[in-house]
């Protein structure tokens, strides 16, 4: 728990905590996670895994006092990182915060299962993952939940190259420049893929409405 004597954590204390990770390291983590999100890049995932594994294991060991369960927590946490990477929204917080949330939620449900014989998995409703609120603050054109979900479905049906740019720009909220750099393609290509993809999406929406 955080040590605060007066019940108020001021900004400088937060800054202090955050400085434990250098901006370069934070940027590196973000780059790896985005590469997993966009390209299912296994090398980047391995780097993420190696960065977080010792800490997740020691966190798990403190929680469960068992190496086997600590390894379970590691596997479950990193599985969700892999499977949910495309839902990470860089605007909503650091990679460490996102991974911590996933790990804390899993660990809470595991502990509860051990202590109560309940398998009710309450954590994701108690601590909604940061990206769950993304829809609420999106631009007005995506204000409608159903439309957004529908769009996500159509976007998934796009050819891989187009899907990458749509996901990158609209779901991970990267700029087109960042995306070009990340995918290692010219900016013009990003723009033309995006144009094609949006045309296709528009067409599908018109056909289905």
């Amino acid at each position: 728990m955080l040590q605060t004597s007066n019940g108020n954590m001021n900004q400088s204390q937060v800054e202090n905590k955050r400085s434990m990770l250098t901006p370069e390291q934070s940027a590196e983590l973000k780059q790896w996670l985005i590469a997993v999100a966009l390209k299912r890049d296994k090398k980047s995932f391995a780097l993420l895994f190696k960065s977080f594994a010792p800490k997740i294991k020691s966190f798990g060991f403190k929680q469960f006092n068992s190496e086997a369960l600590a390894n379970d927590l590691l596997q479950e946490t990193m599985s969700l990182v892999w499977r949910k990477a495309h839902l990470y929204n860089a605007d909503k917080g650091a990679v460490t915060t996102w991974v911590y949330t996933i790990m804390r939620n899993l660990s809470f449900d595991m502990l509860r299962k051990m202590q109560t014989n309940k398998e009710d998995c309450l954590s994701d409703d108690i601590w909604p993952i940061v990206d769950a609120h993304a829809a609420d603050v999106d631009t007005e054109e995506f204000a409608d939940h159903l439309l957004k979900q529908q769009l996500a479905k159509y976007a998934d049906a796009l050819p891989e190259a187009q899907k990458q740019v749509v996901r990158g720009v609209y779901f991970n909220e990267l700029t087109q420049e960042e995306l070009a750099q990340q995918l290692n393609i010219p900016l013009g290509t990003v723009k033309s893929r995006l144009r094609l993809a949006l045309g296709k999406l528009r067409q599908q929406i018109e056909e289905n409405s």
Binding site: Q13, M20, T96
Partner: peptide
């Protein structure tokens, strides 16, 4: 803010092996 701070505490780099020489 608290989640961010807690995450940084749990994943802090005080420990020699983490976020360093990951390869």
């Amino acid at each position: 803010l608290l989640t961010q701070a807690k995450a940084d505490e749990v994943f802090s780099i005080e420990d020699e092996s983490v976020f360093n020489n990951v390869e």
